[in-house]
Simulated scan of single mutants.
Amino acid sequence: MTSTPPHPAQLIVELGFGFIVSGALAAVTELGVADRLVQGPKSAALLSEELGTDASSLYRALRLLASAGVFTEDAEGRFGLTPAAELLRSQTQGSLRDAVLMLTQNIFWAPTGELADTIRTGKTPFDRIFGKPFFDYLASDAAAGATFHRGMSSLSDLENGPIARSYDFSPFQKVVDIGGGHGGFLIEVLQSSPKIRGVLFDHAHVLAESRIARAGFADRCEHATGDFFQEVPAGADVYVLKRILHDWSDEVCVGILRNCRSAMAPGGRVLVVDTVIPPGNAPHGGKVLDVMMLASLPGRERTEAEFGKLFAQAGLRLSRVIPTPTAMSITEAVAET
């Protein structure tokens, strides 16, 4: 049974109000409301005593989120957890608390509010708002940088396993995860292919929070610091670029891909793990993410044809696009002969 689509006017109004729901979600996540409901439903008054907030304001935000399926409100006005609200807890398997705080932080929120100017000029207002480009700002602001990297790890944990299992790494000996963050994806690759060795490649301050050793793979994975704009570790069979190229312009992406092409062993390949925008009007997570990139970064989500052009300029050839159970695809490139 299919649901009836909203009236056109209702659709427009709901889309226009969407930022209010995002704001409420960010607020109660930051306050830690979900953690306070583990033992059972509580009123907004009791929650406010525990959290040091205004009871009426908290009630109104929770009432909105309950109407959206995040939390429930019972006849006594007490709020409880739903399966969605469980994911806002800080200490739970698959928690998305850090992901919500990352997605709703000011580095995305503020530039999105000036999207009309971006569309007029083709340039993000990020540098003007924050005084420097996106990643330079994250490097200079420890709190914002930590929120971003924790959030990306949280978001990636949902997809790492399904994506890693969508590709057969078993024929290869060595894989480099470029800009691999805390190592979540590489851990899944090492688990799926017991004979392969890994290199987690990123900046030193990111690698400081690596999870490789805790996962038991210190003997099969080394850490390498460096700048993928300059060079990447040499001699590997597979170079993974997961959620990397979508951050950058075509020109910069070609440079990164050329570095991989120069470094890889004979018969090697590059795996770009990003969304691949399909044709047509169907909803797709990559279309939302693409406009997020438009607002805050110089990058974009790309179509299969656009990936093919990038690879060709870097001396590579698009060999196949492998779908995964997530919104991401694995776009494989080999050396052009």
Rank of each mutant, 00 (worst) to 15 (best):
D227Y: 08
L11D: 07
L271G: 04
L289G: 09
Y239V: 14
L257S: 13
Q91I: 12
L101P: 00
A24C: 15
P6V: 09
D290Q: 03
I330E: 02
A99Q: 04
E50D: 06
G268E: 02
A208N: 05
W248D: 08
A44T: 04
F19V: 13
R317C: 12
P298T: 10
D202H: 08
I244D: 04
T92D: 03
A282V: 14
I119C: 08
I322E: 07
G32M: 11
I256K: 03
S193K: 09
K287M: 13
N281I: 07
Q191N: 11
G226M: 07
D54W: 08
A61T: 11
V238K: 00
A213F: 02
I107P: 01
L207W: 05
D136P: 01
C260A: 14
M292K: 00
E231I: 04
Y137F: 13
K174N: 10
I330D: 01
L65K: 08
P194K: 02
S57I: 07
R60N: 10
A45C: 07
G216Q: 10
R261Y: 02
L257T: 13
I244M: 15
V270I: 14
S48W: 05
A333R: 00
D141H: 14
S90V: 10
D227M: 07
W109D: 12
A263D: 06
G255M: 09
P279T: 11
F134H: 06
A142C: 11
S262H: 15
G113W: 08
N160S: 13
F126R: 00
S90F: 13
A295Y: 04
R300F: 07
E336W: 09
D98Y: 00
S166L: 06
G16E: 12
C221W: 00
F307H: 15
A142I: 15
S262I: 14
G183D: 03
Q91K: 13
L257R: 13
L25W: 00
A143L: 06
G280C: 06
P83A: 04
T4K: 10
V21H: 06
R300Q: 08
D247R: 02
R128E: 15
V272I: 08
L25H: 00
A75V: 14
Y167H: 15
V321Q: 03
L46I: 15
A45D: 10
